[in-house]
Amino acid sequence: MKFTLLLFPLLALALRSQPRSRTGVTEHVTLNLRPGISLETTNAGAQDWIFQIVGKWSGFQDGHWGLELGDAPTAVYWFFNWDSVASHQEFTRSPEYPATIEKVESLASSFSAPHVPLQPFPPREVFASPVVSWVTFNLTGVANSTATTNWQATANDFLGNLTRVSGYRAHSSGWEVEDSRVFSVLVGWESAESLGAYVISRSFAEGFRRLVSGVAWEHRVLRVAGYVPKL
């Protein structure tokens, strides 16, 4: 689910239409950076300003941010832990919100920001790792609720088996609030090398093939770059 920045005002409207759940949620933000933007050097101040505003909000718990793995990242990821979707909704109605969005517009050409009630929550063990893989599975094509339940059982088995994989640290997962057909998984790794060794293994190939049969999926790998504290 991606939005051009011309549609930023619709984010607040979309959030207000969501159920006012009191379950803790992690906002998964992907920013597709404008050319020449670097959030570790020349544009770090703009990102820090955003984190200062968000960090002071009463419903915000904490968060982490990371960069697309590689020499010249074109995407940055923010993972904000909120008390509830309602807490974030309240922030979108605050006087600080328009200026925050304006600052984001200076950094990114487009973004997505689904909310996921992850388990375990908050996913701090995942982000204690230097490398995180983020996989989303879209079950739009799955026939019925029984098939979805069976898929969830397969996913649980796959994730449970990760504890036996060298280099695995922790994982957290859940269904998106905005689109209940999308299942999101965050997995922490000791290194990019340990993740790479796993994805070329036979056990990964066999287990993952069962997960993605008839299911659309997307995979991102990020380098954890920092912590976003509650202020």
Rank of each mutant, 00 (worst) to 15 (best):
L67D: 06
I37N: 00
R20F: 02
P95W: 06
R181Q: 13
Y77S: 11
A46L: 14
A75G: 06
A44L: 08
V187S: 14
K2A: 15
V25W: 00
R169E: 03
G59W: 04
A46Y: 09
A14H: 04
V224Q: 01
A99F: 05
L222N: 00
K2L: 15
L162A: 03
S110E: 11
R93N: 13
N138L: 00
T140W: 15
V212A: 12
R34E: 07
Q89C: 00
E105F: 08
S17Q: 10
E27A: 07
R124N: 06
D83P: 03
N144T: 06
H88L: 08
L118N: 03
R22K: 11
A99K: 12
F79W: 11
F137M: 11
S21D: 08
T42I: 13
A216D: 15
E27Q: 08
V177I: 13
E193F: 06
Q18C: 06
E96S: 15
A170C: 03
F121N: 07
S213L: 10
F121C: 07
V131C: 12
E125P: 00
N161A: 11
R22F: 06
T26W: 01
L67S: 15
S172A: 13
E90C: 11
S180Y: 12
I50M: 15
A72E: 13
P229V: 14
S201P: 04
Y97C: 07
D62P: 00
R202A: 11
H219V: 15
R124M: 05
Y97H: 09
F183V: 05
R16L: 14
L15Y: 08
E96Q: 13
V177T: 14
G207E: 02
F3A: 11
H171C: 07
F60Q: 04
H64Y: 15
Q47P: 02
T23I: 12
G226W: 01
R34I: 04
V135G: 03
P122Q: 09
K56Y: 02
N43F: 06
V104H: 03
D48H: 09
V228K: 04
R210T: 14
R20M: 03
A205F: 09
S145P: 02
S112F: 04
F137T: 02
A143L: 07
L186C: 02
G66D: 02
L186P: 01
P117G: 07
E193Q: 13
G141L: 10
Q18M: 07
P123T: 12
S129P: 04
G188S: 01
V126R: 01
L222G: 01
A86I: 02
R181F: 07
L11C: 09
T154C: 12
W217V: 05
R210F: 04
F51C: 11
G55M: 07
W82R: 07
V104E: 04
A192Y: 07
Q89W: 00
A128Q: 09
E68P: 00
A147E: 15
N144K: 10
R34L: 10
A153N: 15
P9A: 03
P19S: 02
A86E: 14
S145G: 06
T148N: 07
E178G: 02
P123G: 05
R20I: 02
Y77R: 14
G45Q: 14
G66Q: 04
E218Q: 12
E193M: 12
E193L: 08
G167M: 05
T92K: 10
A143M: 12
S184A: 08
